[in-house]
C-alpha cells in the first residue's frame, strides 16, 4: 500500500538534514522532507486525506483511515510564538481532504521574529527506507506530491 503525501506549502524542497533542529534533521520521529516556504502569507494545507488528530497553532498531525500519521510543523521553535500569527481553519478531530486549508500563517513574520520558517513534513514512526518518489531540491507548489510513503 502506498500513501501520496502532498506539500502543505509552496516553496523550495530541501532535505530533512538541512533543517536547523536536531530532532527533525536526525529523523528522530520519522523520515520526511522539508519545504522552505515562500514568504507570502497563506494557508498550510493537509498533506493527506484523514483526521486531524493533533492540532497546535504551529503544527498538526493528520492520520489516515489506516493509521498512517503525517506531521506538518510550520517553522522551527514556533511553539514559542504561543499561536500568535497563526489562524486555525479546522478543529481537532475534524476530517480533512488532502489539499484542504488547515492553518493560516505568515512565514515572513516568523522569520522577522528570528526563527526559521522551514516546514518539516514527517512520516511519523515510518521506517527509514519507506519513503519513495521523494521530491528533490527545487520549487514546489502547495498540494504537489512531496513523497510517497510505502506502507
Amino acid at each position: 500500500m502506498t500513501l501520496r503525501v502532498l506539500s502543505p506549502v509552496a516553496g523550495q524542497v530541501i532535505p530533512l538534514t538541512d533543517v536547523p533542529d536536531p530532532v527533525f534533521a536526525q529523523a528522530m520521529v520519522g523520515p520526511g522532507v522539508a519545504v522552505r516556504p515562500e514568504s507570502a502569507a497563506g494557508d498550510a494545507v493537509s498533506p493527506v486525506d484523514g483526521t486531524v488528530v493533533t492540532l497546535h497553532p504551529h503544527a498538526f498531525v493528520v492520520a489516515t483511515a489506516d493509521g498512517a500519521a503525517v506531521l506538518v510543523h510550520l517553522g522551527i521553535d514556533t511553539v514559542k510564538l504561543k499561536g500568535e500569527g497563526f489562524t486555525l481553519h479546522v478543529v481537532k478531530g475534524e476530517s480533512v481532504r488532502a489539499g484542504q486549508a488547515v492553518i493560516g500563517w505568515d512565514p515572513a513574520a516568523v522569520e522577522q521574529g528570528g526563527r526559521s520558517a522551514i516546514c518539516p513534513v514527517i512520516a511519523l514512526d515510518a521506517g527509514v527506507d519507506s519513503l519513495i518518489e521523494v521530491r528533490g531540491r527545487g520549487p514546489i507548489a502547495a498540494g504537489d506530491l512531496l513523497f510517497t510513503w510505502e506502507r
Binding site: 530532532v23 493533533t54 497546535h56 503544527a59 498531525v61 506531521l71 510543523h73 511553539v79 511519523l124
Partner: peptide
C-alpha cells in the same frame, strides 16, 4: 514542561 507535538520541552 511544555509539550510540542512529538517532544517534551
Amino acid at each position: 514542561i511544555e509539550p510540542c507535538i512529538t517532544r517534551l520541552r
